[in-house]
Amino acid sequence: MIDTSGMQPWETCGLCHSLDGISRMPKFPKLAGQRPAYVIKQFRDFHSGTRENDGGQMQAITTEIDPNALPAIADYFARLAPPEPVSPSDAGSRPSAEQLFRQGRSGIPACLSCHGSTDPDVPLAPWLEAQHPEYLVKQLQDFRQGKRGNDPGGVMQTIASQLPEADIEPLAAYIAAQKRPERTP
């Protein structure tokens, strides 16, 4: 157990996700500028066991944070400036990656149709631009393999299962290299 006495609740999260919300390790997602409702949902899903991660770090840490502090934690990270795009790699320059992200293709909707929406009815899809590409790859693979299933209605599991394996890394690299537009959750 980490001694968090005297710390703001978001400082505990900052131990892994960084106080500026831009984690340095790809294992930990960047939370800066993220939708508050999404951060709260993921925390609750980890706490309930609906979502798991490798090693159980998040399940353990959720037991140390007062659930009443979740709105303050989520608002703190939401107010931070979003991360800068990751330097593009050759893998992300494939036209198919841009097409998948912006327009979708043959039965696969555009990533932006949910992940770029500011519609209050779609508050649980995270904003993806400028995220660690390795983190994005891992999440897509986990959805694809059924290791992650906390998406409403299994939408991401269905999409990831239809996404060709060869498109996952280029898509993640493309998304990570995009500047996140200013959005209001």
Rank of each mutant, 00 (worst) to 15 (best):
A37Q: 15
A32D: 03
N68L: 14
R24G: 08
Y76D: 09
S113G: 05
W127F: 14
P126N: 09
E64Q: 12
R24H: 08
Q139I: 13
A177V: 04
P88N: 03
D142R: 13
Q162M: 14
V86F: 11
Q162K: 14
K27G: 13
R79D: 12
P120C: 03
T63R: 12
T50D: 14
L31F: 11
A81T: 14
S48E: 11
Q59F: 12
S93M: 15
K147A: 15
L19F: 03
L70A: 06
L19S: 02
A72F: 12
I22W: 03
Q103M: 06
P85F: 12
I108D: 04
A72M: 05
G14L: 05
S18C: 02
D3I: 05
I168Y: 09
D151N: 14
E182N: 12
G33N: 13
N53H: 10
K138T: 14
G92A: 06
S23V: 06
V39M: 14
H17S: 05
D54G: 11
A160G: 00
M58E: 01
A78S: 15
E134M: 05
R102P: 00
G92S: 05
T158Y: 05
S5E: 13
P83A: 13
P26M: 02
S117D: 04
V155P: 06
D119T: 04
W127K: 08
G107E: 04
N150Q: 07
L70P: 09
P164V: 04
A74T: 01
D121N: 15
Q42I: 07
